[in-house]
């Protein structure tokens, strides 16, 4: 019902946003004198734009930086989910009274250390201390560092999602003679996904923005590329604004995708 009405309103919403955009354009054009948008300023903006992005094909720096950012984010998310799921299962097993000896102690140590220290410090330690004497790709190091970091937060997301599933579900599965792991895989986890997915998406968005500190180990990610343009052209406004806009666009796209996924998950509650 909810979805039906929102599809119904969508063309109207689109029309309104176009009207608002057109109105802004008209205001800018009509009042350009009052806004100080004279020909001289426009010319200066144009020169700045050319200097920052066209000369030496500097727009390519941004593009390759974006590529690095996406590459690191994707690897880190994959690693984070693998680590997070493992740690979450250890914590859930512990919660259900299973004995795991050193595994829970390891999981708790990992969670405490990773959540208790800044990600930049973790990145620097992994690059300069752990891989200090090894010649290794910086992008790989960054992916590892952000993946290990993200794993701690993903673990909490998954753990909470599993524990939110009613205890009776596991009991019903066990009472039918299913083993713990089968009941977990076939009964609990499919229900936990609904709790987990939206929060996991949030973590992806956070992670994408967090990788902006990869420049600390001289990875030419999106942020570092913009900063490199700034140091070359001595103009901070254009390149940094461009960087911010690119992040913003990706995050907006992801948010939209998330809303759609969430709506689908909710719909399955009413089938």
């Amino acid at each position: 019902m909810n979805t039906a009405s929102s599809t119904h309103h969508r063309p109207l919403q689109r029309l309104v946003s176009w009207l608002v955009l057109a109105a802004v354009l008209v205001i800018v054009v009509v009042f350009r004198q009052q806004l100080g948008l004279n020909a001289e300023l426009l010319e200066r903006l144009k020169t700045n734009f050319t200097n920052n992005f066209i000369v030496d094909q500097r727009w390519r720096w941004l593009l390759s930086g974006l590529g690095q950012t996406i590459l690191i984010t994707v690897f880190a998310v994959a690693l984070g989910v693998v680590i997070g799921l493992s740690i979450a299962l250890i914590k859930v097993l512990e919660h259900n009274g299973k004995k795991l000896f050193f595994l829970t102690r390891f999981a708790n140590l990992y969670l405490t250390v990773i959540r208790g220290t800044p990600v930049v410090v973790q990145l620097l330690i992994i690059y300069y201390v752990i891989f200090g004497s090894v010649n290794i790709s910086k992008v790989l190091v960054a992916s590892l560092a952000f993946g290990i970091n993200s794993g701690a937060y993903v673990a909490e997301i998954i753990r909470a999602g599993i524990l939110a599933v009613d205890r009776g579900q596991m009991e019903a599965g066990r009472s039918l003679g299913l083993t713990y792991s089968v009941a977990m895989r076939r009964i609990v986890l499919p229900q936990a996904i609904k709790n987990i997915l939206p929060a996991l998406f949030n973590e992806l968005i956070t992670l994408l923005k967090e990788t902006a500190v990869a420049g600390y180990i001289a990875v030419a990610d999106l942020t570092r590329s913009g900063d490199m343009i700034r140091s070359r052209t001595f103009d901070a406004f254009m390149p940094l604004l461009a960087v911010a806009l690119i992040y913003l666009l990706i995050v907006m796209m992801l948010t939209r995708l998330m809303t759609r996924v969430e709506r689908r998950l909710r719909r399955s509650d009413h089938r």
Binding site: D166, G168, A172, G173, R174, G177, T179, I187
Partner: peptide
């Protein structure tokens, strides 16, 4: 697990599996 297969249990709060159909609930195990 083998012993439980011959002991059916019915709970106060039903504990049906909400992600499976009625048929799926019955045939899954």
């Amino acid at each position: 697990n083998r012993v439980r297969q011959k002991m059916g249990m019915v709970f106060q709060h039903f504990n049906l599996f909400p992600h499976l159909t009625v048929g799926g609930n019955i045939t899954m195990a």
